[in-house]
């Protein structure tokens, strides 16, 4: 994989981020309701509202506002929250570790479980193990994440007292306690994604096994682990990687509810409150943050895709 390709993908990601920045910026200006009035309060006099408007820079031309705002963003300044006297960037960075921890743990669990179960089922089509995986996968997709989270918490935390029910401990302070806290919500969040990945992996393995090149490899004397490792898995992984990329986005959406159930104040809780409070600068910050994470995930997925698929590599 060439460096130019990585650079090109990175540049494409930056373009996406720039478009997102324009859209989030405009969103706050175009949305119904007046931010200046929101900040000043319902009872404020028109003079006060105008003063707030000038203070927030909302009386400037749109382009000037955008450039000023973008300049701040590039220096890590996302402005002040409209509803509390705290900088947006700092608030998000405080809430991010909990959310990202759950998401990351969920992603790792989902990939490991989903790929393993799917590949085994695909290689043993029609056997009991294939049926068990298919049934569990359907179940996993059907069960809502928040319900699974409550179920897991009530079993492992309330009944068995194996893991804490709520709260969060930073990784940097105590990795063991961190894992105890994120394991249950991570597992709850992972279940549906693991199920999707398992289904895709099973299907891809089954498809690849029917490919003529697998017959060629068999006709050459390849069998067992040589056949699976060299000819099946790499080819089957191509559509699975696509699904993992798509699912990563779902995880970032699903984590909002799961972290609430697990009693963590993460990004999701923050975003939800910001929306309800019409805290526009906070919403902007959240959208930008989510966009950066998504672009990052897509970059990794793209590079993984190119690594396994020589046809894409050339393009």
């Amino acid at each position: 994989m060439s460096l130019t390709l990585v650079v090109r993908r990175l540049a494409a990601g930056l373009v996406v981020l720039w478009i997102v920045s324009v859209m989030t910026f405009l969103m706050v200006r175009l949305i119904p309701g007046d931010p200046a009035r929101t900040v000043a309060g319902e009872q404020a006099t028109p003079e006060l509202v105008e003063a707030v408007r000038a203070q927030l820079g909302l009386d400037q031309p749109l382009l000037t506002q955008y450039l000023r705002w973008l300049g701040g963003v590039l220096q890590g300044d996302l402005g002040m929250s409209l509803t509390s006297p705290r900088p947006v960037a700092q608030t998000i960075l405080q809430a991010a570790p909990a959310t990202l921890s759950i998401t990351l743990v969920a992603l790792v669990l989902a990939v490991v479980l989903g790929v393993t179960a799917g590949v085994v089922a695909g290689l043993r089509q029609g056997t009991w193990i294939d049926r068990v995986v298919s049934t569990l996968a359907t179940l996993g997709i059907a069960m809502p994440g928040f319900w699974v989270a409550m179920l897991l918490i009530s079993i492992f935390a309330m009944k068995l007292h194996l893991l804490p029910a709520t709260g969060y401990a930073p990784f940097s302070e105590d990795p063991a306690r961190w894992l105890q806290h994120v394991l249950l919500p991570g597992a709850a969040l992972a279940l549906a994604t693991a199920a999707q990945i398992a289904r895709q992996a099973r299907g891809s393995v089954a498809d690849v096994l029917a490919e003529p090149y697998v017959r060629t490899a068999r006709a050459r004397g390849a069998s067992g682990s040589v056949l699976v490792r060299r000819h099946v898995l790499r080819n089957a992984s191509i559509p699975v990687i696509t699904v993992i990329g798509l699912q990563a986005g779902h995880l970032l959406g699903g984590v909002i509810i799961v972290e609430t159930v697990a009693g963590m104040s993460g990004i999701g809780t923050l975003a939800l409150r910001a929306v309800l409070d019409r805290d526009y600068t906070m919403i902007q910050g959240y959208v930008l943050f989510a966009a950066v994470v998504m672009v990052g995930i897509n970059l990794v997925v793209d590079l993984a895709y190119q690594w396994v698929n020589p046809k894409v590599r050339a393009a």
Partner: peptide
């Protein structure tokens, strides 16, 4: 016994 098949494109592993 060696074997060759009809569609050489699909009979070769695309990722190797």
């Amino acid at each position: 016994v060696g074997a060759i098949f009809q569609e050489p494109m699909s009979s070769l592993n695309p990722t190797m």
